[in-house]
């Protein structure tokens, strides 16, 4: 088991990332708490070592995505999260614009959400996302372009090209 120092550092460093992925899939705080415990326990128990922090981050993203999927598989749950609940769980209330964007992303079909988040927010390339999510690169391109189209329709604006 990794040392307390190590897990504390990981929590500090990656909690926000994990939280964002949780938001994409889970509907409430309690479920998010479960995923946090699962993910960081897995991290603490992981016997391997990471080449660098990028490697470590990618590992945590993959574990979180899988944990969320497993979690949703094991319970019959609603996949979309009412934006109100997210609002409630946040430290400060979201401005209108941000709330709209998040709502649009969350309303996407499940398969698009991770891709959009990883591509736009984390800045991974399609190839990297393919590796992370264990999917074909072409599939990622398709998912990306479809997701972009939906978002454009919902949010408008030229920048969604």
């Amino acid at each position: 088991m990794r040392s307390e120092w190590e897990t504390d550092r990981a929590i500090e460093q990656y909690a926000d990332t994990v939280r964002k992925i949780c938001m994409l899939h889970l509907k409430n705080e309690a479920d998010t708490e479960d995923i946090f415990q699962t993910v960081f326990l897995k991290y603490a128990m992981y016997p391997g070592s990471f080449a660098d922090s990028e490697h470590e981050k990618a590992w945590l993203i993959r574990v979180t995505v899988n944990a969320c999927k497993d979690f949703l598989k094991s319970f019959f749950r609603r996949n979309t999260v009412p934006i109100e609940e997210i609002q409630e769980s946040l430290v400060s209330p979201l401005p209108q614009e941000q709330s709209e964007v998040l709502e649009a992303v969350l309303s996407l079909p499940d398969k698009y959400k991770d891709v959009i988040y990883l591509y736009f927010y984390e800045g991974y390339s399609a190839v990297e996302i393919g590796r992370l999510l264990k999917k074909n690169v072409n599939t990622i391109y398709t998912l990306l372009s479809r997701a972009k189209a939906i978002l454009k329709e919902k949010l408008g604006g030229e920048e969604f090209a």
């Binding site: 939280r19 946090f36 998040l102 992303v105």
Partner: peptide
């Protein structure tokens, strides 16, 4: 726009502490 929207989604200190 997406980055700004996601930026506001953070893990609360409470969530981190519970995990710890």
């Amino acid at each position: 726009r997406i980055q700004t929207a996601f930026d506001s989604v953070q893990a609360s200190p409470e969530l981190k502490n519970k995990t710890r």
